[in-house]
Amino acid sequence: MNTTDGDVAAVPARGQPRNAAAADKLAEYDRRARIPIILSAVLPLIIVPEQGNWVAVVVGVASWIVFVVDFFVHQRLLVDYLGTRLGKFDLAIVLLTAPWFLVSGAHGAGFVVVLRLARLGRLLIATKGVRRLFARLGRVALVAGAVLFVGAAMAYYAERPTNPEFATFGDALWWAIVTLTTVGYGDIVPITTAGRIDGTAIMLMGVALLGLLAGSLASFFGLQPQQTNNGDTTANDAVLAELAHLRAEVKELTGLREQLAVLTRHLTTKPEAPPGAEPD
Rank of each mutant, 00 (worst) to 15 (best):
A241P: 05
P274M: 13
V66S: 01
V130N: 11
P99R: 08
T182C: 07
R247V: 14
V112Q: 05
F149Q: 05
E28R: 03
V150D: 02
S219D: 14
E272C: 04
V58D: 03
T269I: 11
N2A: 09
G222S: 06
Y157M: 12
W64D: 04
V150G: 06
T97F: 03
K270H: 09
N236E: 12
L86C: 01
T3F: 15
L91I: 11
P36R: 02
V178N: 08
R132F: 10
F101D: 07
V48W: 06
Q227C: 04
N229Y: 03
P17K: 08
Q16L: 08
I197G: 04
T234K: 04
R34P: 03
T192D: 13
G211L: 14
V207A: 10
L217K: 03
L217M: 14
A144G: 10
K25V: 05
A146G: 14
E249N: 11
I46G: 04
L124E: 03
L267K: 11
D237M: 07
P12N: 10
R32M: 09
A152W: 04
H107K: 03
G199H: 00
E159W: 02
G276L: 10
T193A: 15
H245G: 11
A208L: 15
H245R: 12
G87A: 05
T228P: 02
A277E: 14
P271A: 11
L82W: 06
Y29Q: 02
L96D: 05
G121K: 04
N53P: 11
E278F: 07
L204T: 06
T264H: 06
Q75C: 04
R18N: 15
V147R: 02
I197S: 07
T254H: 01
G110C: 08
R160K: 13
G15T: 06
K270D: 12
R119N: 07
Y81C: 02
Q51F: 13
T84F: 07
G138V: 14
Q75L: 07
P161W: 05
W100F: 15
D171H: 08
L204I: 13
G170E: 10
F71W: 05
D187G: 09
A33P: 04
G15P: 10
N163A: 12
G211F: 14
R76L: 03
L117C: 15
I177R: 04
